[in-house]
Design a protein around this nucleic acid. Structure first.
Lengths: 234, 234
DNA sequence: CGCTTATTGTTTCTCTGTGAGACAATAATA
DNA sequence: TATTATTGTCTCACAGAGAAACAATAAGCG
């Protein structure tokens, strides 16, 4: 495997994806660990010279998760001069056994366009890329240090997600098709980082006329069984 | 004057600013008309190789309006392959008497990062750039056709401004320091594109505790004089 | 089976904020 | 002094959210 060639990609421009998932009551994101360096980073990539920006991000997401048709939103273009550190990039490449030329394009200044994605945790089959030996879920509340300005990117993505949450009714993208009201509320609580009142939440969701009610879910627990809901398809 | 050199700027990346102003009850934006072509476009520019993205946008804004310390928000990175038309760019350059080489960098594919700015209409001294022979205000409700995808950029910027309006209390950036409640309401109405109730608007603004009340404004009209307000500095 | 427990779905009461309109205050004019 | 236009405030009705009560029910246990 040889180094990616400059001629194939737009120089100076990368994308990074903050991929949100929800499991065991916690909001999590995907991080990659680069081979032999211990460095953690957001999954990202480059835009091909004849490729739409959105398509590039979708392609990268598909390669890491096997998912198409993912809910995606652009967050922000990060463009400070010092956000990128060529020394770190060189270290990552060299740890993979590449001989990196001095003027290599991946060592130049990079702008990064951040996106966030919402996915159903259960549908994912994770695949590391050629430079990383692992990809996995990390709790948003206990993130380790990431390379470059990736911690800032995550913060901004979470802010944007919170702002969009009510306006765009996107909470359901983190759940399987059918879910209980309690699970939906847990998603909202994990995203907003605060508890909500059960009765008010239920009343509000039902009054918005966006949910279909289905059969009850019998869990074997000794109490009233909750209904399952799904988001209306229209 | 010679053509801008590729070596000074980040290739493939431009910025475009939607500069909002408010006068005579109308919301307006700044547009440039390119010399001898009749083509209209948003004021924009390129990012220098060692310049922060935000600083580049501020620099461009300062050169066009003479304003520093402007309220700025990033809107969106536009990155479709076909958003840019090298033929139009070539036409603009040649109309200014430049001989454009075939591989000239400004004819390549371009991504554009859109910003919006809010400015006090009265403080501006407009200056066209070297390629354009006029810069001026155009009503947001009656915009002409713009080059590339600039009409789309304006729409998206207006959408973002509307979404941010209440959350960030930014309406005052379009007014002089002191203003009447009626003027503030007019700004909100122009941005949102709809009339609001005078009494409810006043009650809401006052209850938010963000305004200082000053002396009355005597206009010479035969009716009660309104108070002047300013946004609290804190 | 009857009782208990935990959780869910619904209802009630209260409080706040908004729409709609009434009403009082007032700067200039006739 | 009365009139006019506009402003600042108040009142009433209504909708939505917080808080809590209440009713329904699936399973466990005697």
């Amino acid at each position: 495997m040889s180094l990616p060639e400059s001629s194939q990609y737009i120089p100076h421009l990368a994308y990074d994806s903050v991929v949100f998932g929800f499991s065991r009551g916690k909001l999590k994101i995907l991080l990659m660990e680069y081979h032999d360096t211990g460095l953690l980073a957001l999954p990202g990539g480059f835009v091909k010279k004849n490729e739409n920006l959105d398509d590039a991000v979708k392609r990268g997401l598909y390669e890491r998760t096997g998912l198409k048709e993912v809910y995606l939103e652009q967050v922000h273009l990060f463009g400070k001069v010092d956000r990128f550190d060529p020394g770190i990039m060189k270290k990552i490449l060299e740890a993979n056994g590449y001989a990196v030329p001095d003027q290599y394009w991946m060592l130049d200044r990079f702008f990064s366009i951040a996106y966030y994605a919402l996915i159903d945790w259960e549908k994912v089959t994770l695949k590391p890329d050629t430079l990383s030996d692992s990809i996995g879920w990390y709790e948003i509340d206990h993130l380790p240090d990431l390379i470059f300005d990736h911690n800032q990117i995550v913060s901004k993505a979470l802010m944007t997600l919170r702002e969009n949450l009510d306006r765009k009714l996107i909470g359901g993208n983190l759940l399987p098709e059918k879910f209980t009201m309690n699970e939906l509320q847990s998603v909202y609580e994990a995203i907003l980082g605060q508890k909500m009142r059960r009765t008010s939440f239920q009343r509000k969701m039902l009054s918005m006329d966006i949910l279909d009610r289905h059969e009850k879910l019998f869990t074997g627990k000794s109490h009233k069984a909750p209904y399952l809901y799904s988001f209306k398809s229209t």
